[in-house]
Design a protein around this nucleic acid. Structure first.
Lengths: 342, 342
DNA sequence: GCAGCGCCTAGAAACCATTCCAGTACGGAT
DNA sequence: ATCCGTACTGGAATGGTTTCTAGGCGCTGC
């Protein structure tokens, strides 16, 4: 089968006995067309099964009706949910979303900038993953509109949709403290990430509020991945039993899951032997045993709003700044009062 | 800040004192250029921070270097993993992947066809979700190259990457039977889906092989979503205890999770009171209590191969047909022998 | 009866890169 | 000195759309 040439506006115009510009006016409603001719054009379009060549269109319009979405890890359901939110907002206005997964091997921000400059995409929605240089993101933003999700660059106010992580963190830590725990430990996220900083700050506020010196609470380094939860838990278990914390505050659910895995493997039970909380409220978290107490971020909504914000930016509406959504503590079964003897 | 015009080849050419075509030759290596001039061009490109306008390029080349990936549900980790595989294959050859999530409200295949015809994308990778009409997919495939993942249209051999679901299903059912179960039930997927049909067929083969009449085994209708597992479990629990199956074979993990949720809520324990198996081997499944016995599909690899297959198609290499990967049974803790008294 | 106005239409100039083709310059062979 | 082939270069056509501009036509109001 010889791949027949797709029909163009010219074909439609000839078929309908009008000029090319008339066809364009009909297509975009960008000029007045007499009803009778409009119908002729419409008929011709149907007949020829014409659809406009989007490459030509974006060339002329200087806009690709496409945005890039940078997602560090799709299998993390938080990101997946954000992605769905973005997608939903985009498809409502007929914008395509291209999926970009940073390649760990190189500095990817440069590629996104090139994407932007080559007009393949009109803007970028950026979810930061385990490690990205603030400076690189800022450079990227100079090539075109960028909206950050759950990330902020200190000092520069790039448009962003964030969650009140600090408050959520404070509240979940307060919940743990309210159960009577005094020997705590934190498993933190990648220190370079805004969210990790915010969450830690929130925890410390709660500690201070309960009369505990935040600097006395050990913070184990994590990277938001499950594996790092396992590692941190192993380190904690290596300490003598009477020095161990009675509650462990994890900066996200994945690490909390790793922790629980490790504790269980070592014969400890959660929450009886150790209370655990997470952050993110992944859908799985309520299916675990015990059901994990966590902090819910409105992921879908964050994605949706970020996309909206980007579209506004592209439309020239310059209401940038950060949009902040609430984080909500979900209390479940992974926290209980500490044992008497600790 | 006035949005300054991006530099074009013309600017580069003027800057380097060569013609536009020379710049193009340098850019694409599509013609001989003397080293000295090549360097002048390269310098000018760097100096002006030029990057080619991809819209113009695709217009001329008649190819967008972009493919669409239809994903019914990103929060399903199986799909997410496939997506990552696709993405990885694509980024290796500098192809963009646009994410398309079917909108439940309308017939989306038509939109994908339009996407294809408008040359916004060169091809489509199609993962079928809970319900899609085979005919619609076939229509879609007439607008451009389409590769199916974990789906096949009977009678038409569209290019596809599938998993040996039938065999995996047979084996996992055989495992259940080997534990001594004789009273079984199946919770099936959407009957319109190829995977659901294959899995059911596999289960039935195993039943027959164990001397059980497959038609005697009740099949509850599910739709691959967690909720439908809950519903089916509730229906089963409504039956008198001595008529209940001792083992429940679920056509995917999500439904199995729903089943377990419901059983637990009703005071039954898994696997002691009822054995459960799933299909897909979602990453969460090994974190549940009990750890769920399931069938692993090489999701990432399936995505990767599907993308490769599509790119081959686009390159004119016509080695279509279906690629079949093995499904591997993962035996864990959710199956044990039936109680004596049943 | 004519200027002036509103609708509508067609022509043509962008938009930017690719590629065919004709042409230049220069080395060596005759 | 002439001719030819090679290695390179530049002009121009092309891809399909949008949009500016000018103009045609039928009215109204004076």
């Amino acid at each position: 089968m010889v791949a027949r040439r797709r029909p163009t506006m010219k074909d439609v115009a000839e078929h309908a006995n009008v000029s090319i510009s008339t066809v364009s006016y009909v297509l975009n409603g960008s000029g007045p067309v007499a009803p009778e001719r409009r119908n002729r054009v419409l008929d011709a379009i149907r007949l020829l099964d014409y659809s406009p060549n989007e490459s030509a269109r974006s060339l002329k319009r200087r806009s690709a009706s496409t945005v890039a979405m940078v997602i560090p890890d799709l299998t993390n359901q938080f990101f997946a949910m954000v992605a769905e939110g973005v997608q939903r907002a985009a498809s409502a206005v007929d914008v395509l979303v291209v999926l970009v997964v940073p390649d760990a091997t190189e500095v990817p921000e440069e590629n996104y900038a090139k994407l932007l400059r080559s007009q393949r995409v009109d803007g970028v929605i950026y979810l930061s993953g385990t490690g990205s240089m603030p400076a690189a993101i800022y450079d990227l933003a100079r090539s075109g509109p960028v909206v950050l999700v759950d990330e902020q660059i200190p000092g520069r106010d790039l448009p962003a949709v964030v969650c009140n992580s600090r408050r959520g963190a404070r509240e979940v830590a307060a919940h743990v403290l309210a159960q009577g725990h005094r020997k705590l430990a934190v498993i933190g996220g990648p220190p370079a990430l805004w969210t990790a900083q915010q969450r830690l700050a929130g925890y410390r506020e709660a500690f201070a509020g309960a009369g505990i010196d935040p600097d006395e609470v050990p913070v184990y380094a994590g990277d938001y991945r499950q594996e790092s939860g396992v590692t941190a838990a192993a380190r904690i278990l290596a300490e003598p039993a009477d020095k161990r914390p009675t509650a462990l505050i994890c900066a996200n659910d994945l690490m909390a899951i790793g922790v629980i895995e490790c504790l269980k493997a070592n014969g400890l039970s959660v929450p009886q032997d150790m209370s655990i909380v997470g952050f993110d409220d992944q859908p799985i978290s309520r299916l675990l045993t015990p059901r994990l107490t966590s902090v819910r971020q409105p992921a879908h909504d964050m994605g949706f709003r970020a996309a909206k914000m980007l579209f506004d930016l592209l439309d020239g509406k310059d209401g940038h700044g950060a949009d902040q959504l609430p984080a909500i503590v979900q209390i479940r079964d992974s926290v209980c009062p500490p044992k008497e003897d600790s």
